[in-house]
Design a binder for these strands. Structure first.
Length: 424
DNA sequence: GGCGGAGCACCTCAAATCTG
DNA sequence: CAGATTTGAGGTGCTCCGCC
């Protein structure tokens, strides 16, 4: 029978004697009272460590007490020496037990004492240190087998995070966050659109998917010295939204808003469908339902504002000649720049010290007329109706500023336009 | 089992292209 | 050049399927 040991090790100047005879496993040798020197020949060393008949261990002469008192204490053993001694013992006592088998036995055993020992090992997070050592010793990311193992575990961690927001949201720790990431087409409203912020969404992802974000940051952060002008946070947020949407189409908050943006910019249906496949946008059908819901939400707001006695309303209805690039948004025309007859509901701010009822009171105008409103000198009257310097400054706003178009309709000398709702 | 998103077929309409 | 035909895009309704 081949009794060749399963492992072989050596230190400088030392090696095992192949002719060494293995002692009985049940008679483990006692620990030597002093460390064996590294460069001791193997036979002597093994005798020192393992031989119960060793001269050191057998020294039971009457001089013991004197020896303990007068002998200088042996210097502490180095780690190498202790490890070496342990390996020697293992080989001597259990020549067929490999280190891998030993570790497996220690960490998978059901024996209470062994579990206690392995638990102490975990308690100090020593296993993380060992894993770091093994990672470096094997070549880190250049070792394919090691990288495969690590990535498999990392993928499982990221999948678990995603699961807590999608298929296992109900049972997970982020149920409320998962609900906030779902936006049914029929629930799209002005409030939902107004509240959407990529930055805020990114913060939510940082909180509920920290490990996935760690990986995305590592991948998307450019190397030092290269181009760094772009803000990667928005892209990482989009990537996360895409990943979650591809896992579950119910997680669609970002995609829903994207589909509205695409609709507003007249992106063709087939492109929307393509981007839906990619997980960037909701489907075309969702777009249509969403716009319907959004239009209803806008109308509800307009009705509420129109019936609010605390607001000052103005309802211009005319053929508006929109300035170039002054976009009008409506449910039926998307964003267009055109001239057309339209009705606008304009909510004007209430001046300080008064209220809507007083400002819009007919009696107020009658009072002004009766007090000689038309008796002021013509020159003064003209000065009051022509644009002031402030008016002119506002009228010189950039042509693509929609406020500019509004000021053409509502003279600045009256009130600033506070809110505009388009009634479709 | 209900809800909601996606897929699909089908419709309408307008622009582009063909044909006599 | 005018009418016919084709093409392509937007929109709708039904069905399937995943999630809760």
């Amino acid at each position: 029978m081949d009794n060749k040991p399963l492992f072989h090790f050596s230190l400088p100047g030392m090696d095992f004697n192949e002719d060494y005879e293995e002692p009985d496993a049940i008679s483990s040798p006692p620990r030597p009272s002093s460390p064996p020197p590294i460069d001791t020949p193997p036979n002597e060393f093994l005798q020192t460590i393992c031989d119960p008949n060793s001269a050191i261990l057998e020294d039971t002469s009457d001089d013991d007490a004197e020896f303990v008192i007068h002998e200088k204490r042996a210097p502490p053993m180095k780690i190498d020496e202790k490890v070496w001694g342990t390996l020697v013992h293992m080989r001597a006592a259990y020549s067929r037990l490999s280190i891998a088998e030993f570790l497996n036995g220690l960490f998978t055993s059901e024996d209470s004492e062994l579990k206690k020992a392995s638990g102490q090992f975990y308690a100090g997070s020593a296993h993380l240190n060992e894993m770091e050592l093994w990672w470096n010793a094997c070549g880190g990311e250049t070792d394919q087998a090691m990288a495969d193992w690590v990535m498999e575990k990392a993928a499982a961690i990221c999948a678990r995070e995603a699961s807590h927001l999608t298929d296992r949201a109900f049972d997970g720790p982020h149920f409320e966050d998962a609900k906030a990431l779902r936006l049914p087409a029929t629930k799209i409203s002005v409030k939902a659109v107004d509240e959407f912020q990529v930055k805020a969404l990114g913060s939510v992802y940082d909180r509920v998917t920290p490990n996935l974000q760690r990986i995305l940051r590592a991948v998307t952060t450019p190397p030092p010295g290269s181009e760094a002008k772009r803000n990667r946070e928005f892209g990482r947020t989009m990537i996360t939204s895409m990943a979650l949407n591809l896992r579950s189409q119910k997680t669609n908050y970002h995609q829903a808003i994207m589909s509205l943006i695409f609709w507003d910019n007249r992106l063709p249906k087939r492109i929307v469908q393509m981007l839906n496949e990619f997980g960037i946008s909701s489907s075309h059908a969702y777009q249509i339902k969403g716009i319907k819901a959004l239009s209803k939400s806008v109308q509800d707001l307009a009705r509420a504002a129109a019936n609010d006695i605390a607001k000052i309303k103005m309802l211009p209805y005319d053929n508006f000649n929109w300035m170039s690039r002054a976009w009008e948004t409506s449910a039926t025309h998307k964003s267009q720049s055109h001239d057309q007859v339209a009705a606008l509901l304009v909510i004007l701010p209430t001046p300080d010290g008064t209220d809507a009822k007083t400002v819009t009171s007919i009696a107020q105008f009658k009072e002004k007329r009766s007090s000689g409103r038309h008796s002021i000198p013509p020159r003064q009257a003209l000065a009051e109706i022509i644009p002031s310097r402030t008016d002119e400054a506002i009228l010189r706003l950039p042509p693509n500023d929609p406020i500019c178009a509004l000021h053409l309709i509502v003279p600045q000398s009256m009130w600033l336009v506070y809110e505009l709702l388009v009634v479709c």
